[in-house]
Design a protein around this nucleic acid. Sequence first.
DNA 1: AGGGTGTCTGCATAGGTATGCAGAGAACCG
DNA 2: CGGTTCTCTGCATACCTATGCAGACACCCT
Lengths: 339, 339
Amino acid sequence: MARKVTSLDVARVAGVSQSAVSRVFTKGASVSPAMESRVRKAADDLGYRPNVLARSLITGQSRIIGLVVAYMHNPFFADAVERLSHALQAEGYHLLIWTVGNSDVDLDRVVDDLMDYQVDALIAASVDLSGALVEKCAAAGLPVVLFNRGITGDGLSAVTSDNRAGGRRVAEFLLAGGHERIAHISGWQGSSTGRDRAQGFADALAEAGHGVYAQADGRYDRDTSAGAARDMMRRSDPPDAIFVGNDYMALSVMDVLRHEMGLSVPDDVSIVGYDDIAMAAWPSYDLTTLRQPARRMVDATVREVLAQIGTPGRQAQKIEIDGPLVVRSSARLPQGHSE
Amino acid sequence: MARKVTSLDVARVAGVSQSAVSRVFTKGASVSPAMESRVRKAADDLGYRPNVLARSLITGQSRIIGLVVAYMHNPFFADAVERLSHALQAEGYHLLIWTVGNSDVDLDRVVDDLMDYQVDALIAASVDLSGALVEKCAAAGLPVVLFNRGITGDGLSAVTSDNRAGGRRVAEFLLAGGHERIAHISGWQGSSTGRDRAQGFADALAEAGHGVYAQADGRYDRDTSAGAARDMMRRSDPPDAIFVGNDYMALSVMDVLRHEMGLSVPDDVSIVGYDDIAMAAWPSYDLTTLRQPARRMVDATVREVLAQIGTPGRQAQKIEIDGPLVVRSSARLPQGHSE
DNA sequence: AGGGTGTCTGCATAGGTATGCAGAGAACCG
DNA sequence: CGGTTCTCTGCATACCTATGCAGACACCCT
């Protein structure tokens, strides 16, 4: 195993000082063309590359961004992680990832862990941070950006879709479709995203003189949401439409209705999801859903993270990116709907 | 933004030397109980935690493991990444991730990048490393473990299922089912995994006096494999069974057959996949498939990575973990098959 | 020619931690 | 009580790089 080659080795070979080598690899530093080529030559010969970790010790920038993610099996997040990683790579940053269940105990340890690695920022995807943790990050001057989660206070930047408006849009669409008994299997009510969607949905129904015909917490889990669907449809007068809090659960609900209960979607009951994951477009499901534009959300997240890093005292931003309702065949269409 | 608190700060407050503080946080070091509690008290008061990066500078261990992954949208890999991350977390390591397309140019840069971060090891999931890159890693003494990819030479450790045997098993199952025209839409033939499965499959058919009735390269892509299925089934005498190189593509093939061509699976054509991703068990697909035990593969990968880190000169291991054929309803059953 | 400006280089140090070495005690044994 | 061993502590240094400072030099202008 070859010993690591350091800037000092390069300096010796090139017959210059270590500082000179450093300057060649530090952009913005002042180096003559002669020096530049001489050092590069030696560096290439030796196979030298700067040690990011040692550099970080001085600059205080690790170029590492911590990512905490809870629901990787939901394709929306798998996709988001891939995009985040790619986008940050392009900016010379990289993701150090932590996967967690949704217990606060875990999170506590994770945040400590993160800080040990001197990450430049923290992205929390599908994770709800407790107030105590937010405090801790703020105290350490660690920028935090929430992805697909909001937060009640205003200390943190957050990138989401406009969940309340999205919920409304779904309600309006189902009302326009002439549905009478409109139910909701929500995302986990412990999450802001789950609550906001449910809220917007309920508000819009109420304004139209309807109530939410039935509601259950799907907890972002396939089995839980399947169970909820089963219960709802077994009632003597079952709903004729269900808005499910995200696509991942909606697919599970469709499976139960069709294959276990022998019901037809949308003839017996309309289903609408949220996210527009790739699978929603697959012909087996062809799910009507409210799109969260993953790409734009990721772009906004990256921009915000970099801005926070660049400007320490920066005001936290609530960024809401809205997407269209993607009309497919899992929900009955309103009269005269053209498409 | 609070200044970082260092071991020296703790030392001053506790009235001891910096070495003492370091020793308290270095396990295996010799510290008296009195010293221990005194230092811990001061550390807690100040909120001190050791700087992993500075530590790595001395120990030569970053406790960071580089992960290169290409197909995150395939749930098999999303799942694997989640498990890998979780398992490594438990061992005090963390994943720094790079996502790549499958171009070699990319990979070249990525490996350089990786080394800049002084990662302790590299896990390449669903990525085929060129010989040159393998050389480079070997030269740098960087342990590499391939996940779900083999390699022709023997310099690298690799964890896979027994792809050849798996391919055989599928062939035998389809033959036992009485199929006459057995086709294959393979994984990318540039990947060892894709080649091995195809090879084992073809061998078993040949031994039974059959040939592969039709073959196409699905390139691990939904559209490509869908197109291949379309072409095959449009022939005057289409196949009565198709083995698809992984589940992700198999689901796409099923969608095309059923919803675009109006064919029945398995009545018109049997479909068998490979991986047993979660979706394969969903009732909309209920896909017969050869299971790759993700959990055991991940465990083996982690074990091998840690072993390589612990024993630098260690012999590379080819670890093949086999899984059962999971019989569901997407392929016609052999006579008298009990289940 | 002399002074001012600007570019480039090396020296020295800092950043936060781990560890070899030697010394100080304590504990133990005969 | 003297000598040996063991445990613990501090001192000094090393890990690898970036950067402030000052000096060297070239250049331009008056």
